[in-house]
Nucleic acid binder design. Structure first.
Lengths: 253, 253
DNA sequence: CACTAGATCTCGTGT
DNA sequence: ACACGAGGTCTAGTG
């Protein structure tokens, strides 16, 4: 990995390092005393203090304080970053057109300025949420109940997409609402909204909330709406490489 | 600001630097080739690559790739961080009990290891819909009360910026604190802080909290501090608030 | 481009 | 501690 890191550079040197980093499409990390203003989707001011400034090669721009996961100010990927020097003071600016917004950092003094050109081709493999639950239900419908048959996933209604639409052993329509986490009243309200789409349906339609657990409020609301609940924890298995599997077997199953 | 930064430390030295940083409650920044596993609310694997690892003094723990604002893996504030050395290989672990989860980073090689103890007391002042309220008050001051005259917006005091400073019909100074949402005790405390800036002022100064509603606690505190309250709903621009638009067209039916 | 919905959402705030 | 709502949400995926 190629990188450069300097301690206590003056304004001019900070300016040079940042410009080198920008031109090399590096990840730039600066520890500095700075103040920040933002104007765009909202407006904010942040007085002077010691912070970490990060500029990534995709244009992501963050200012981090010493607390919280989230940056106190930021600019999303693809924003335009540029450094400038006015009367010996360093300014860093991140901006974009749509929506129009601008982040400006005034750097009072720099403790460390550095940039890095690393190698990272790896993507994250994640499991344990709604998508995996959907797959599990389709692969093994009887975990919902004996005789359950899924028909559509992402079934479109005027009130949004139903996670899974199916039929039970008696042929009744069943609306499944999946949640990978403890479900609150909003999940029940959402399910109810889908149910309303079938209000003029001749036959009986069942609505089932599928989640690891529900809040007390949600439980009461389920009863009030005459909806059902099934406890299910999202599966945590990593799939074997899907692309490979599909290519290899060609979908012959 | 006190800090330490070293280039290309070996495993042992990286281990020492991280432990120093942890014991000093510093912000730790490491550039390293590493792999990551996570298990908890979900489960994930990330193969080897060059990344930035950040540990903040509140226990926030992040692994950043060279793209996107968000970390590829993380652990929230208050999680327990510890470093360990097994067979000459560095491991960094962040974990917490509730919910139970664990993030482990295996560090293959370190390009830079550093920690920082900065000073930062400043909080962010955000002004979004409040800006619209300010405009509304300036455009039409009598919605505050008959004879109200706004003088300054963003009036600077040692305790922060006063939203609107004005005078009433009798010439008394009036401090307005605007909140776009239901105001809690913090809003009242903030207003009180501004009022304190005028404690040696000869004449009477009024403080008014302007918000759509207040919590009961806030209402009590207002009384205790002899502050006033005016109910005002922030104007929302057409197109920015979809619900309003939908209500407008769909609600009349 | 816009639009949708999920997220290890995070973060504040109220109960 | 838990539940709920908002966010400059972000991010991936689809039309």
């Amino acid at each position: 990995m190629k990188f450069l890191s300097e301690k206590n550079p003056d304004s001019l040197r900070t300016f040079e390092i940042i410009n080198e980093g920008l031109s090399k499409k590096s990840v730039i990390v600066i520890m500095a005393c700075c103040s920040v203003t933002y104007e765009g989707r909202a407006r904010s001011k942040l007085g002077s203090g010691d912070r970490m400034i990060i500029i990534k090669s995709d244009g992501s721009f963050m200012v981090h304080q010493d607390r919280n996961l989230e940056p106190v100010n930021w600019q999303p990927p693809k924003s335009q970053c540029k450094a400038s020097l006015k009367d010996g003071v360093m300014y860093l600016e991140g901006s974009r057109r749509n929506p129009p917004e601008r982040l400006e950092v005034e750097i009072k003094s720099t403790y460390m300025a550095s940039y890095f050109n690393g190698e990272d081709s790896k993507g994250l493999e994640l499991t344990g949420y709604e998508e995996n639950m959907r797959e599990m239900v389709f692969d093994n419908p009887k975990i919902i109940e004996e005789g359950f048959r899924p028909i559509n996933r992402e079934y479109s209604t005027p009130n949004g997409f139903i996670d899974i639409l199916g039929k039970d052993i008696e042929g009744n329509l069943v609306v499944l609402e999946l949640k990978s986490r403890r479900a609150g009243i909003n999940a029940v309200k959402q399910l109810k909204k889908y149910m309303d789409c079938f209000s003029d349906h001749k036959e009986f339609v069942r609505g089932i909330l599928v989640a690891p657990s529900v809040t007390d409020d949600a439980s009461e609301l389920l009863e009030e709406y005459k909806l059902e609940y099934i406890s299910m924890v999202p599966p945590r298995e990593f799939g074997t490489d899907k692309n490979l599997t599909l290519d290899f077997f060609g979908g012959s199953k």
